[in-house]
Amino acid sequence: MGYNVKRVLIDQGSSADIMFWEAFIGMKIPTDRLMPYAGTLVGFTGDQSSYSILGGRPTLNKLGAVVSTPHLKLKYPLPGGKVMVLCVDQEIARKYPAEDVKEVSLTEGRTIKIGVSLTKEDEEGLVTVLKINILAFAWSASDIPGIDPDFLCHHLMVDPRAKLVIQKRRKFGEDKRKAIAEETKKLMAADHI
């Protein structure tokens, strides 16, 4: 194997895996490996994809893969106990930025960002739905005060046999300290901490 494939999208929310014809041919995969699909594929706008491959849950599950979004890596086990790591070429990733967005005001002080590729009709429909349902969104911690910790609480899964380690104290600059204090006050005012 050993092919470089540019523009692969790993979508952990997708139930479909798609390899576009150019990538299929470029990787010299025999055509007898093609499998027909009789189901319905929903979600494409008819625009040409800028990706060569769209990988979803079926591939991730079959590989037993783990995705690390912050590190732009995908790891999966190989026979013999080895681990394969797929990495993003940072230079290529910088050449292809995410879709351009624009800021739209829903009401005074409440703005969102939406993709510029939406048709005028889709944009108007989306903005209308968001404006009608504006109260369904939490814009800050104070918008959702007093959440019962029994209903929603984060727990760290720590092995009780693990040795405790004291982390080195971090020193933050004045701006960071102010931001941390401000966010902590907001969470305390909303009874989240």
Rank of each mutant, 00 (worst) to 15 (best):
residue 3 Y to M: 06
residue 9 L to G: 02
residue 16 A to Y: 12
residue 30 P to M: 11
residue 30 P to K: 10
residue 31 T to A: 05
residue 32 D to S: 08
residue 36 P to V: 12
residue 43 G to H: 07
residue 48 Q to K: 08
residue 50 S to N: 09
residue 52 S to Q: 07
residue 52 S to I: 00
residue 53 I to T: 00
residue 58 P to M: 06
residue 60 L to V: 06
residue 64 G to L: 06
residue 65 A to W: 06
residue 66 V to G: 04
residue 69 T to M: 06
residue 78 L to T: 09
residue 83 V to E: 15
residue 86 L to F: 06
residue 86 L to C: 05
residue 89 D to E: 14
residue 92 I to G: 03
residue 93 A to Q: 10
residue 95 K to C: 12
residue 96 Y to T: 04
residue 96 Y to C: 01
residue 99 E to F: 05
residue 103 E to V: 01
residue 105 S to E: 15
residue 107 T to F: 05
residue 117 S to W: 11
residue 119 T to F: 08
residue 120 K to R: 12
residue 121 E to V: 08
residue 127 V to S: 03
residue 127 V to N: 01
residue 136 A to V: 12
residue 138 A to N: 15
residue 140 S to R: 01
residue 140 S to G: 08
residue 143 D to G: 05
residue 143 D to A: 05
residue 146 G to C: 08
residue 146 G to M: 03
residue 148 D to M: 04
residue 152 L to Q: 03
residue 155 H to V: 08
residue 159 D to F: 00
residue 160 P to K: 00
residue 160 P to A: 08
residue 163 K to P: 06
residue 164 L to W: 15
residue 164 L to T: 13
residue 166 I to M: 11
residue 167 Q to K: 00
residue 172 F to S: 09
residue 174 E to C: 05
residue 177 R to I: 14
residue 178 K to P: 02
residue 179 A to C: 04
residue 181 A to S: 14
residue 185 K to P: 02
